[in-house]
Design a protein around this nucleic acid. Structure first.
Length: 253
DNA sequence: AGCCCTGTTGCCGA
DNA sequence: ATCGGCAACAGGGC
């Protein structure tokens, strides 16, 4: 689930607790946690939920003056705000209105951390500019300036933050580019087209709360399986950068 | 029931 | 730069 649009949707959910005081804290520690149980409790309990930020696939929740709760979900995740506690919650924040903000991670592959400054944290991680924020020229410079395959470049969080396996395939499909094409083989005009498509796809996904059922039918995502149908032919499955990759040979060159 | 494979991520070592 | 292995777990196929 958690690529840029999913995390943006998590952020909006967390935003519903804005200004609410955290009365109760429940933490199910596991290997995701970089911050200790005691320091998390110290910074969470009794404080009010502040503003929220997202950068790439990272979510930042301000929980105390200058302190941020940092969340990265790995391959699975969700955030809920309701009276009921969700299964697989790693952190549950209880508020006086009886509602709970649940941070969910079924597979426990991500990260939970504390940070003083969002910008410093992003820099420390070496993340590139957020995909929704990056200018056309910057995109062309960062993606175009590598030697490997175009899909590998798109998924490199150090170049541009937020594009994962599913959306990389979608961007390449809609841009008519074979995932294994070498970057050097793609001209500037095509790179700019990719940038435009990336923004459009993410905007569409965000508008629909990252729910693929609501995306246009023309999206690859709906037929993302070996032998799946496409206007031009059949979807093919290959491996790129160690990840399953789906594309249409008739459409993508 | 149980075994095997796959996977929306990212780090590490060869 | 690229590749395989790995982390933890659920769900589907057989």
């Amino acid at each position: 689930m958690p690529e840029l649009p999913d995390v943006e949707s998590f952020r909006k959910t967390a935003q519903k607790a804005l200004g609410k005081r955290i009365d109760e804290v429940s933490i199910n520690m596991n290997r995701m946690f970089e911050a200790s149980d005691s320091s998390l409790r110290k910074h969470l309990k009794g404080n009010k939920m502040g503003k929220t930020k997202r950068h790439g696939k990272y979510l930042f929740l301000r929980i105390n003056r200058g302190k941020w709760l940092v969340l990265h979900f790995g391959m699975t995740g969700d955030v809920t705000y309701a009276k009921e506690e969700s299964d697989h919650s790693i952190i549950v924040l209880g508020f006086s209105n009886g509602r709970k903000l649940c941070i969910i991670s079924v597979r426990k592959l991500g990260t939970v951390d504390l940070a003083d400054e969002v910008g410093d944290y992003i820099e420390k991680k070496g993340l590139g500019p957020d995909a929704m924020d990056i200018s056309r020229d910057e995109f062309r410079k960062r993606i175009g300036g590598s030697r490997g395959s175009v899909k590998t470049a798109l998924m490199d969080q150090k170049k541009v933050a937020g594009i994962g396996n599913i959306y990389a395939d979608e961007i390449l499909y809609q841009s008519g580019i074979h995932p294994k094409r070498k970057i050097g083989d793609i001209n500037e005009k095509k790179l700019e087209e990719m940038h435009k498509n990336m923004l459009r796809i993410f905007k569409t996904a965000i508008r629909n709360n990252a729910n693929p059922d609501e995306f246009p039918r023309s999206y690859l995502l709906h037929n993302r399986e070996d032998g799946g149908s496409c206007s031009g032919g059949r979807i093919k499955k290959i491996t790129v950068n160690g990840r399953s990759t789906y594309y249409c040979p008739a459409v993508q060159k």
